[in-house]
Computed example of a mutant assay.
Amino acid sequence: MNYELFVGIDISKLTIDAVSFTEEKIEEAVHRVFKNSYDGFGEMLEWLTAYNVPLEKALFCCEHTGIYINPITGFMDANNLSLWVENGLHIKRSIGIRRGKSDKADALAIAHYAYSNQYKARLYNFPSSTTSRLKHLLSHREQLLRHQTSLKCTCSELRGFGTENAAYCITDSEEMLAIYAERIKKVDMELSSVIQNDQELNNQFQLVQSVHGIGKQTAFFILIHTEAFSAFSDYRKFASYFGIAPFPYSSGTSVRGRNRVSSLANKKLKSLLTMCALNTIKKDNEFKRYYDRKKAEGKSSLCVLNVIKNKLLSRAFATIKRGTPYLAEMIA
Rank of each mutant, 00 (worst) to 15 (best):
K237R: 13
F238I: 03
F242R: 02
F242W: 06
F242M: 08
F242I: 03
G243M: 05
G243D: 03
A245H: 08
F247G: 02
F247K: 11
F247L: 15
P248A: 07
T253D: 12
S254V: 04
V255P: 03
G257R: 09
N259Q: 11
R260C: 13
R260A: 14
V261R: 13
S262D: 06
S262E: 07
A265K: 15
A265Y: 03
N266P: 07
N266R: 10
K268D: 11
S271N: 12
L273P: 09
T274W: 12
C276A: 15
C276G: 08
C276H: 02
L278E: 05
L278I: 09
N279E: 03
T280V: 15
I281C: 06
I281A: 05
K282F: 00
D284F: 00
N285C: 09
E286V: 02
F287C: 07
F287K: 01
K288V: 00
Y290Q: 06
Y291E: 04
Y291A: 04
D292L: 13
D292F: 02
R293V: 00
K295Q: 14
K295I: 15
G298P: 07
K299L: 13
K299N: 10
S300E: 10
S301I: 04
S301Q: 11
S301L: 01
L302I: 13
C303W: 08
V304F: 09
L305A: 05
N306K: 02
K309V: 07
K311T: 03
K311D: 04
L312M: 07
L312D: 06
A316H: 01
F317H: 01
I320P: 04
K321F: 07
R322A: 13
R322L: 14
T324R: 13
P325F: 09
P325A: 06
Y326E: 02
A328K: 12
A328I: 02
A328W: 00
E329D: 14
E329T: 09
M330S: 14
M330N: 13
